[in-house]
């Protein structure tokens, strides 16, 4: 079944790695955090790992004070909190009935990080009035910015 949303979530490899690393560090508890985008754009510009106030392997609650700090930081940067990520430590990356029942915002991206298998997998969903639709996650690989150990102005393609 094709996702009903035509939108995709764009995220850099660095931010994706940040989410997964936070979830691995929180293991065996569920890890969670928030993502910020420019208003109306599905492009992750900041990622805020937060404490799991539920401190549980089966539940998460984004720590309210971490949420407040993230919200303020995002606003200062001209961004909005536009989604949440959390891990399922032993289940697939699909929203559980708990996730669906507690999803606060139909415009948010609900990112699931599954640690069920050796390779963490990441998927993203929209949850609107109890209906779940998956959206593709497009990962932007990092572009090499400067030549390794190069000094400014030195040509990257200079033969060594």
């Amino acid at each position: 079944m094709a996702p009903t949303s035509t939108e995709a979530l764009l995220i850099s490899r660095r931010h994706l790695d940040e989410m997964v690393a936070h979830c691995l560090a929180a293991y065996p508890e569920e890890g969670c955090g928030l993502i910020a985008t420019p208003p109306g754009l599905a492009l992750v510009e900041r990622c805020y790992p937060t404490r799991n106030a539920a401190g549980s392997a089966r539940l998460y609650t984004v720590h309210p004070l971490d949420h407040l700090r993230a919200d303020r930081d995002a606003e200062t940067a001209g961004l909005v909190i536009a989604g949440v990520f959390h891990s399922h430590t032993h289940t697939d990356p699909y929203p559980s009935p708990t996730d669906v029942g507690q999803a606060p915002d139909p415009t948010w991206h609900y990112v699931l990080v599954s640690l069920r298998h050796d390779l963490p997998s990441v998927r993203s969903y929209r949850i609107v009035e109890g209906g779940v639709s998956e959206e593709p996650v497009l990962v932007e690989e990092e572009r090499p910015a400067v030549p390794p150990s190069g000094t400014p102005g030195r040509r990257a393609d200079r033969a060594g």
Binding site: M1, A2, P3, I11, L16, D17, V20, E30, C32, L34, A54, S56, R58, L59, Y60, T61, V62, P64, H67, V84, H86, H88, T89, H90, T91, D92, Y94, P95, S96, P97, T98, D99, G101, Q102, A103, P104, D105, L119, P120, S121, V122, R123, S124, E134, P136, V137, V139
Partner: peptide, 26 residues
């Protein structure tokens, strides 16, 4: 908004079997 959820209190989350589009696998 209070942001909460999780895999829930019982067993496996329901996976509807739709493999959907290729997604990031790290």
């Amino acid at each position: 908004p209070a942001v909460a959820g999780g895999c829930g209190g019982r067993g496996d989350a329901v996976f509807d079997g739709a493999p959907a589009a290729p997604t990031a696998v790290l």
